[in-house]
Deep mutational scan, measured.
Amino acid sequence: MSIQHFRVALIPFFAAFCLPVFAHPETLVKVKDAEDQLGARVGYIELDLNSGKILESFRPEERFPMMSTFKVLLCGAVLSRVDAGQEQLGRRIHYSQNDLVEYSPVTEKHLTDGMTVRELCSAAITMSDNTAANLLLTTIGGPKELTAFLHNMGDHVTRLDRWEPELNEAIPNDERDTTMPAAMATTLRKLLTGELLTLASRQQLIDWMEADKVAGPLLRSALPAGWFIADKSGAGERGSRGIIAALGPDGKPSRIVVIYTTGSQATMDERNRQIAEIGASLIKHW
């Protein structure tokens, strides 16, 4: 067993022997301040990774656009098919120029040779490549099948209805392509620590998230040296922004954090800054 596999296998073990965790309302004060600064709703939840206990939450059962955070769930569904012998990570998928959609920095470079399922998941999570996500959605049967996968996990809230990039439209009061912070946090925890996926697939999923290259201005910008984070960000229309993450000190994750916002007129930089400040408060009061 590799060191990384050992780390993920012992996530519940280490967490069980940690000192009790206590909620700190100071972080919620910052979440509410972010709402004021952005002029928009902000949803927040913080779960203990081992027990699933909610440590703090704000608007945990209000719907927010998922945006690209759905790509972690998508690759979880792909990995479940791999575990069941219905898919192979090494299978190569070929596609054409007509398949390319807006923001496809990886797939646009491989029109000639195609990409493997493993490479597509890596591109979808680490670079948020939209064509990679659409190609992977095709392998599982489309958005409705991802929703069905989530329902089978016990998540009857999260739903995907459309493809990239239309799913980022974020129309107010439109339930399409949305989740709730509580539902997303619980589902992410199941994917990373539950028995739904094999140990190898859980490790692969967290490795992809740990290698995320496009979430630097968010929670990662607030992390002290030595902290662990595996995350996936999302951005959408109407001032929408979000991030889902597993993080913790001492090089291992111990909490799940989900943050979503929508309806702001603020710039992307300002949305990023507010999420980073929430992260800084979380870490300060850990």
Rank of each mutant, 00 (worst) to 15 (best):
P181H: 00
R176S: 09
H285G: 09
H94K: 14
D36T: 15
T193W: 10
V78C: 05
L219M: 09
D250I: 10
I243D: 02
M268V: 09
A225C: 13
I125C: 08
I278K: 00
A266C: 13
E169W: 14
L10P: 08
E46A: 10
G279V: 05
E35L: 02
D161R: 02
P25M: 10
K190C: 10
A9T: 15
R63W: 04
R118I: 09
R63D: 03
T178M: 03
E164Y: 04
L89R: 03
T69C: 06
P12F: 12
N130R: 00
P143R: 03
F64Y: 06
P12N: 11
G248T: 01
L55D: 04
T126M: 09
V82L: 05
T69D: 00
I229C: 10
V106E: 14
S68A: 00
L137M: 11
L223F: 05
S80E: 12
H24A: 15
A246W: 06
N130I: 01
G216R: 08
M67D: 10
M1Y: 01
N98R: 15
K32V: 11
S281G: 08
R189K: 14
T131W: 02
H110G: 08
R273V: 10
G90W: 11
I125W: 00
T186V: 14
R91L: 05
P249R: 09
E169C: 13
E166P: 06
K53F: 10
V117E: 02
P12L: 12
E87Q: 08
P20E: 12
P60E: 15
E35M: 04
R91P: 01
T198Q: 11
L136E: 01
R91Q: 07
P165T: 11
L137H: 03
L19Q: 15
T139S: 15
G239A: 04
F70Q: 05
A148T: 14
A123M: 03
N130A: 03
A9M: 14
K213S: 10
D177V: 01
R159H: 12
F22I: 07
G141M: 06
I11E: 03
E277L: 12
P20T: 06
W208E: 03
G141R: 06
I229N: 02
A222M: 12
E210A: 10
N50C: 08
A230T: 02
G234L: 01
E145P: 09
L150G: 05
L223E: 02
R63A: 07
A34P: 02
L74S: 03
Q203M: 14
M180N: 13
R81N: 13
I11Q: 05
R255P: 00
S96N: 14
L49T: 08
E270D: 14
P143N: 04
Q4Y: 14
G154T: 05
I256V: 14
A170R: 08
L188A: 08
N168V: 06
D99T: 09
N50W: 10
D113C: 09
H24G: 14
L219H: 03
V72L: 05
G226M: 07
E145I: 10
F58W: 14
V258N: 02
E166A: 13
L192D: 01
D99H: 08
R271A: 10
G239E: 01
I171P: 07
L137A: 06
D99E: 14
I3R: 09
N152T: 14
L188H: 04
I3K: 14
T187N: 11
E87Y: 05
H151V: 13
Q37R: 14
I283Q: 06
L218T: 04
S254Y: 09
G114Y: 05
H24I: 10
I259V: 14
D113N: 13
V42T: 06
Q97V: 15
M184P: 00
L135D: 01
A266I: 06
G52H: 06
L205N: 01
F228D: 03
K252W: 09
T139H: 10
D207F: 10
T107H: 01
F14S: 08
H94M: 14
P20F: 03
L135W: 02
H285Q: 10
A182G: 13
K71I: 00
A222I: 14
L223H: 03
L89H: 05
V78D: 01
A84P: 03
F64K: 01
G242K: 00
E175V: 15
A132V: 00
V72E: 01
H110N: 08
T198Y: 07
V31M: 08
M66T: 06
K284T: 15
F17S: 08
I54S: 08
R220T: 03
G242V: 01
E175S: 12
M115K: 03
S122T: 12
A246P: 00
L218Q: 03
M67A: 14
F58Y: 15
S122F: 15
V31H: 01
D269E: 15
L219N: 03
I140M: 07
I125S: 03
V31P: 01
R63M: 07
R118Q: 13
L219G: 03
L120G: 02
F58R: 09
C75M: 06
L137E: 04
R241M: 04
M184G: 01
T131Y: 05
R238M: 14
D83S: 06
I140E: 04
G194I: 05
D250K: 14
M180H: 14
R41F: 08
K232I: 00
A276S: 13
Q37P: 04
S68H: 00
A225T: 15
L89Y: 07
E26D: 09
L135M: 10
L73A: 11
T198R: 09
E164R: 01
M153K: 08
L38S: 08
L135F: 06
V72I: 09
N168L: 05
L150W: 06
N173E: 14
V257C: 07
P25Y: 08
R238N: 15
R7D: 07
N130G: 05
L218P: 03
V157G: 10
R220S: 04
L111H: 09
L191C: 07
L188N: 02
R59L: 03
G242W: 00
F17I: 13
W286T: 01
F58S: 09
S264W: 04
L188F: 14
I206S: 12
L167C: 12
S254C: 14
E270L: 10
M268C: 05
A34S: 14
P25T: 11
S201Q: 06
R202K: 15
K232W: 00
M66S: 04
E46S: 13
H156R: 13
P165S: 07
D33R: 15
N152E: 15
E166D: 14
P165Q: 06
G52V: 04
N173T: 14
N130C: 05
I171Y: 14
K32R: 14
G279R: 01
L120A: 06
R255S: 03
P60F: 09
M67I: 07
V257A: 06
W163K: 11
E164K: 01
M115N: 03
S128C: 00
V82C: 11
D269P: 10
L73V: 13
D161T: 06
L192A: 06
